[in-house]
Amino acid sequence: MKPAAFDYLAGAALADAKSALAAGAKPMAGNQSLGPMLNLRLARPGRLVDIAMLPELRAVTETATGLRLGAAITHAEIEDGEVPDPTGGWLREAAAGIAYRAVRNRGTLGGSLAHADPAADWVIVMTGLEAMAIIDGPSGRREVAMADFITGPFATVLGDGDLLVAIEVPKPGVDARWGYWKFCRQIGEFAKASATVLVDPAKNVNRCVLGALGRQPLVLEESQAVIEGRLSPRDAVTQALPGRSPEALALHATALERALAQANGE
């Protein structure tokens, strides 16, 4: 379980990193997902460019509508409140539930999203919060809604030479309510089922998202009906996920029920 040989480029400026990426290098930040894949030789990049300390990716900036978090901000920095939390605590709580502390110390927000593990926390949480991915690519910068950023299991819109540089998290309205619930059998494991519920009356947002589906997160079309109690979470999940086993449906429905209960302050 030793990686195949690769070149390692560190300490470069963003421009250098981008030219390395354009030449086929793979970016590496906290190395919590890529590292094991390298060791298992499932990933065999010829060249790695370390982006963990790039100032642009470590920056935190407030915008008119929210907060822009550099992609190399670690889970632990969010958990510990070392960076502002525009949601008033939802991000901190989600961060604190990621894997375990050793992973959170090194793992990054952007790395987790770019890796796009279907069961990962940020993948569903950022989709649930309607965050935006800020991508710096060969043809300049672009912003992509998180629901569109992740296109499948371990798949994103990131193309050759693209780098996820920041995530913009919108600041919710004053009456906004939030629920995030995931089912992990063991502390530190990936979720078997997860769900978020965002109710933001000021912005007219009613959003239910299911995660840990083995695909990208699913934004429920019937979110508003579920939130308003016109459609049971169980029925909503059953309709939205045809072909799943009864046991899997039970777990996803329970996750949604419990996220909804949280959002409702129950």
């Binding site: 094991p36 298992l40 059998r185 063991q186 502390i187 530190g188 494991e189 990936f190």
Partner: peptide, 14 residues
């Protein structure tokens, strides 16, 4: 299962 992410050992909190 080929890693401990898939083969689940008990951990302290269990």
């Amino acid at each position: 299962a080929s890693t401990l992410a898939d083969y689940h050992l008990p951990v302290a909190s269990d």
